[in-house]
């Protein structure tokens, strides 16, 4: 596996930070239904991308990768849900936790080449773009 896939990690985190900073001033305009879906998609997508990349970069450190990805998914889902209300926090938390535990296994099973990671990145970035568009139009 080539080492340049580590840059996608930085891209994911930057996109999540930009999305959070974009959503923060308009959090009162967004209803609870869209808020719940934003928490689920943002936390789960960030945990999925991070787990798939990290297990390909460090294939021998399974325990550390599982712990860090589950923590990242929980914190990201909780933060995106905390923009809206407490039930969004709960939904984002459990979805980020599930995605964070499952994604290192998916990444380890699909470690053939960088094509899978490219498509995962495309999927996550298009998810974020859709999310920001729907938040902009609401």
């Amino acid at each position: 596996m080539p080492q340049w896939i580590g840059w996608f990690l930085l891209l994911n985190l930057t996109t999540a930070c930009i999305a959070y900073l974009f959503l923060y001033p308009r959090r009162n305009l967004i209803g609870f239904h869209l808020g719940m879906n934003i928490a689920m998609a943002a936390g789960g997508g960030l945990a999925l991308g991070t787990g798939v990349i990290l297990i390909n970069l460090f294939p021998l450190h399974f325990i550390e990768v599982i712990i860090s990805t589950a923590l990242l998914g929980m914190v990201a889902g909780g933060l995106f849900g905390a923009l809206f209300d407490y039930q969004s926090v709960l939904t984002g938390y459990i979805n980020g936790l599930m995605m964070g535990i499952m994604s290192p296994m998916v990444g380890a099973a699909a470690s053939e080449g960088p094509m899978f990671i490219l498509f995962i990145e495309l999927f996550i970035l298009s998810c974020y773009v859709l999310l920001l568009t729907s938040a902009y139009r609401s």
């Binding site: 294939p59 021998l60 399974f62 325990i63 296994m105 380890a108 099973a109 470690s111």
Partner: peptide, 9 residues
């Protein structure tokens, strides 16, 4: 099962 080394832990 996942392509990880068998003596991982």
């Amino acid at each position: 099962l996942c392509g990880l080394p068998a003596d991982l832990w």
